[in-house]
Amino acid sequence: MERGNHTSASEFILLGLSSRPEGQELIFRLFLVMYLVGAAGNLLIILAVGSDSHLHTPMYFFLSSLSLVDLCFISTTVPKMLVNIQTQTQSISYGGCLAQIYFCILLANMDNFLLAAMAYDHYVAICHPLHYSTTMSLQISALMLGSSWLIANFHSLLHTLLMARLEFCASNVIPYFFRDLVPLLQLSCSNTHLNQLMILLVGGLIVLIPFLSILISYIHIVSAVRRVPSARGKQKAFSTCGSHLTVVILFYGTITGVYLSPSSSRSADRNSLASVMYMVVTPMLNPFIYCLRNKDMNGALWKLLSVKALSCGL
């Protein structure tokens, strides 16, 4: 097919989670509640860590960074979906589509990198406690965070620029509530081999390397904990990692459901449900997972809420 016969699409149509009018109001209320709960939970963690000097450690530095990323993550997709439902429109401009792709890839990468950094922090704390203060200083933690942002920006910019060179001249209907790379590539009438190659090579490395570092860290952690003589010591070590391990399983489990399940067994409804778990439910649950299993976070949150209540009363 020749390029001269094609005209590039100026907007895309998002079908969302349900095309039935009677289900739109329920979806609006459900996602509004999830967004408010997720935003409030992540914001509370950021404020609690920032206001309590006892939490100014690398572990909570990474946790507050993860909460900031999750707050931005749900704010990238859910508000647009809520506006579309409320105004009964399903369109998004081509520029808005590229912008959402950029931020979704950026923030997903940062979740990935931060989980790996937190696993390494646990590894050093449990396996090399005497060297923890020098190996995981706040300066080194800040350097790890800055490097993660740099790599994540490069990766998201790469895919956004590669997507911007394509023409979309066939159907402009996307059967999801957000813009993702693979559905958009399927709508393009340009040659997408380079895009698919970059997704496979660069995207694969971006996901695989942090995942392997998490796996190796926990292999060493389990090996070290097994050598601890007391049951109380083992319980303390595992409780330190319990929240993080739960978030890791939730994050990579939902990613597997979205991107790694066989295409022959996937439907639009199943993909939409997996995407909701990955982009909305997981960021919403992370604050609860960390707060329920962490006494220091519980104490900092109660202190923060008590101060806020006292100031409001005055």
Rank of each mutant, 00 (worst) to 15 (best):
residue 64 S to T: 10
residue 65 S to E: 13
residue 66 L to N: 02
residue 70 D to P: 01
residue 71 L to P: 00
residue 72 C to M: 14
residue 72 C to P: 00
residue 73 F to T: 12
residue 74 I to C: 03
residue 74 I to H: 06
residue 74 I to T: 12
residue 79 P to T: 03
residue 85 I to H: 11
residue 87 T to L: 14
residue 89 T to I: 09
residue 95 G to A: 13
residue 98 L to G: 10
residue 100 Q to M: 15
residue 101 I to K: 06
residue 102 Y to E: 08
residue 103 F to M: 11
residue 105 I to L: 14
residue 106 L to H: 05
residue 106 L to S: 01
residue 108 A to T: 14
residue 108 A to F: 08
residue 108 A to G: 13
residue 109 N to R: 11
residue 109 N to L: 03
residue 112 N to I: 04
residue 113 F to G: 03
residue 113 F to K: 02
residue 119 A to G: 02
residue 119 A to V: 00
residue 120 Y to A: 00
residue 121 D to H: 06
residue 121 D to Q: 09
residue 122 H to R: 06
residue 124 V to Q: 04
residue 125 A to Y: 03
residue 126 I to N: 01
residue 128 H to W: 03
residue 131 H to L: 13
residue 133 S to E: 13
residue 134 T to I: 10
residue 140 I to S: 01
residue 143 L to I: 05
residue 144 M to R: 08
residue 144 M to C: 02
residue 147 S to I: 03
residue 155 H to V: 09
residue 159 H to S: 04
residue 160 T to H: 03
residue 162 L to C: 10
residue 163 M to T: 14
residue 166 L to D: 07
residue 168 F to D: 08
residue 168 F to H: 04
residue 172 N to A: 12
residue 172 N to G: 06
residue 176 Y to G: 04
residue 177 F to R: 04
residue 178 F to N: 09
residue 178 F to T: 14
residue 179 R to K: 09
residue 179 R to Q: 14
residue 185 L to S: 04
residue 187 L to S: 00
residue 189 C to W: 04
residue 191 N to C: 14
residue 191 N to R: 08
residue 192 T to G: 04
residue 192 T to K: 03
residue 193 H to D: 14
residue 194 L to P: 09
residue 195 N to W: 01
residue 196 Q to A: 03
residue 197 L to C: 12
residue 198 M to E: 13
residue 198 M to C: 15
residue 199 I to D: 10
residue 199 I to F: 07
residue 202 V to N: 04
residue 203 G to I: 12
residue 203 G to R: 10
residue 204 G to F: 08
residue 205 L to G: 13
residue 205 L to E: 09
